[in-house]
Simulated scan of single mutants.
Amino acid sequence: MANLARQLRQEQQQQTVKAPKKKHLHRKGLSPGEKILGLVFGAFVCIGSTQIISNQSDIYQLNKGIQLTEREIQTQQKSISDLTVQVNELSQYNRIKEKARELGLQLNEQNVKVVQD
């Protein structure tokens, strides 16, 4: 029995050793399908990067326009506040009374009506 087991082991080892080795096929270059896929992928990358750059440029231009508009709004708000202060100064009672005297108007207290807010 022991001899038979040894023979089986030796045969199994010889079979595993004698297994034919796979030959590696060395291909030269890429197949036409792989070349087309590479070109299509490259085209998508180029188109995508161009699209991204174009979008970023548009966003930059819009942001620039927004900033200019905000700057104009701030300038107008400052002008409005300055004019409001000027209106308040010019509408003071003493100044109006002086202007009326310069123009020859006189205050008739019987014609004055008091209006309250």
Rank of each mutant, 00 (worst) to 15 (best):
A2E: 14
I36R: 12
T50M: 15
M1W: 05
I73N: 09
N111F: 06
T69L: 15
T84H: 09
N88D: 13
Q10I: 03
Q10E: 10
D82V: 03
E11W: 00
K23M: 03
L39A: 05
K78T: 06
L83K: 04
K97M: 14
L103M: 14
R6W: 02
A19G: 01
G65R: 13
S49T: 10
P32L: 00
L68E: 15
L90V: 10
V17Q: 13
L83V: 05
I36P: 03
L83H: 06
Q67R: 11
F44G: 05
T69Y: 14
Q76G: 02
E70G: 04
Q14R: 04
S91Y: 09
H26Y: 08
K21G: 01
E89S: 11
A5L: 07
Y60K: 11
V114E: 08
H26F: 09
G42T: 00
S91L: 08
H24G: 07
T69F: 13
N55F: 11
E34Q: 12
I73A: 03
Q86N: 09
G29E: 01
L4I: 03
S57E: 15
T75N: 06
G48L: 08
P20D: 07
A2W: 12
Q10C: 02
E11G: 00
F44S: 07
I73W: 04
L25P: 00
K64V: 09
R95N: 08
Q56N: 14
N88K: 05
M1R: 00
R95H: 11
R27A: 07
E89D: 13
G48E: 11
M1F: 05
K28R: 12
E70L: 10
E11F: 00
E34N: 07
N108H: 09
K28I: 10
I59G: 02
E34A: 09
Y93L: 05
V85Y: 10
T69M: 15
L62Q: 14
L4F: 03
K35V: 06
Q77C: 01
N88T: 03
Q10Y: 00
G29K: 00
F41G: 09
L4K: 01
T16C: 02
Q15G: 00
I80A: 05
N111V: 03
G38Q: 04
E72M: 06
Q7L: 07
L25K: 05
Q56Y: 12
I66F: 15
E89M: 08
Q7N: 04
S57Q: 14
F44I: 08
Q12I: 04
T16M: 10
R95Y: 14
L30N: 06
A5G: 00
E11K: 00
T75Y: 04
K99Q: 15
N63K: 02
S31Q: 04
V115M: 06
V87D: 13
L25W: 06
V40S: 05
E98V: 12
H24T: 05
Q76D: 14
Q92R: 11
I66Q: 07
F44A: 05
L37S: 09
S54P: 02
V112N: 07
V85H: 04
D58F: 13
P32N: 01
Q76P: 01
G29D: 02
Q51F: 13
K99H: 15
V114H: 03
Q116A: 02
L30K: 01
G104V: 02
R9N: 08
S79T: 04
Q12S: 04
S57D: 15
Q10R: 02
E102P: 07
L37A: 13
Q10D: 10
